[in-house]
């Protein structure tokens, strides 16, 4: 089992806390740089669309938010799986660190989509497969957060949340492929599709930058939340007391 020692060391709260402390600033600054480039170029300098004019610029927020809403859920479900099978405390903390971040990005994707839908489609909301499954995704996130708050014992809470997170992962491919499997008002995928690109390079580069930048930002927020979670969970242990003592000097 010696090949797994790095894994066990990583999974121990104090060493992960230190790793996150070193990693987080990099993620944060890189995210700031990429989002700065992506959003300034996307919102001000990219050409306007031949049909939607300036309204299409919502994609620089909507697409990253929607992509993250799915990716973060997968991350949360993986953490839930590890928490269920290996009973690892770090995974339990990761699960609850991710949930509110994922819920926020899901809500952002829904709201930006609605604001775009009214002028473009003619309706804020329709019950097509994509919109409905994305709303279910929001409810799954809120369910995890609510379950977490409902338990006194953090370990029991984590187990319940993990089960919900893992079961809910079924919804992720439904959201992703709803526009391919069924007729929907929501359009198909622009970036992640085979064949010729459906977006001009001058519009696409800021979009890629804002997607990657948003992922890094989400990584930054999740790491910081995870650090916080570890501190409050391990309060009173030697490493936390040592850390707090040192930082106070």
């Amino acid at each position: 089992m010696s090949s797994w020692t790095w894994f066990h060391r990583l999974a121990s709260p104090p060493s992960f806390y230190r790793l996150a402390d070193r990693l987080a600033p990099w993620l944060g600054w890189l995210a700031l740089a990429l989002l700065g480039y992506g959003w300034i170029n996307g919102l001000f300098f990219a050409p306007e669309d031949y049909q939607q004019k300036d309204a299409y610029r919502i994609i620089y927020v909507h697409v990253p938010a929607a992509a993250l809403s799915l990716s973060l859920y997968v991350g949360m479900a993986v953490a839930g799986f590890v928490a269920l099978v290996w009973r690892m405390k770090l995974a339990e903390s990761a699960l609850i660190a991710i949930a509110p971040v994922g819920a926020s990005f899901t809500a952002l994707a829904l709201v930006t989509g609605m604001l775009w839908g009214k002028p473009m489609w003619g309706a804020y909301w329709v019950w097509d497969a994509r919109l409905t499954s994305e709303l279910v995704l929001l409810f799954l996130y809120l369910g995890v957060i609510g379950l977490w708050q409902a338990f006194e014992d953090p370990r029991a809470a984590a187990r319940a949340c993990a089960l919900l997170a893992v079961v809910g992962v079924i919804n992720v491919p439904i959201v992703k492929y709803s526009v391919d499997w069924w007729n929907s008002l929501h359009q198909g995928s622009t970036i992640l599709k085979m064949g010729k690109p459906s977006i001009t390079a001058a519009m696409a580069y800021p979009l890629f930058a804002s997607v990657i930048g948003s992922y890094l930002f989400a990584g930054y927020v999740v790491l910081r939340r995870l650090q916080n979670e570890l501190l409050s969970r391990e309060a009173g242990t030697a490493w936390v007391r040592e850390l707090m003592g040192r930082s106070r000097v």
């Binding site: 050409p47 669309d49 939607q52 473009m120 489609w121 329709v126 359009q187 198909g188 622009t190």
Partner: peptide, 10 residues
């Protein structure tokens, strides 16, 4: 309602 496709271009 208008259904937009996935193409964006100037």
């Amino acid at each position: 309602l208008a259904k937009h496709d996935e193409n964006y271009m100037p």
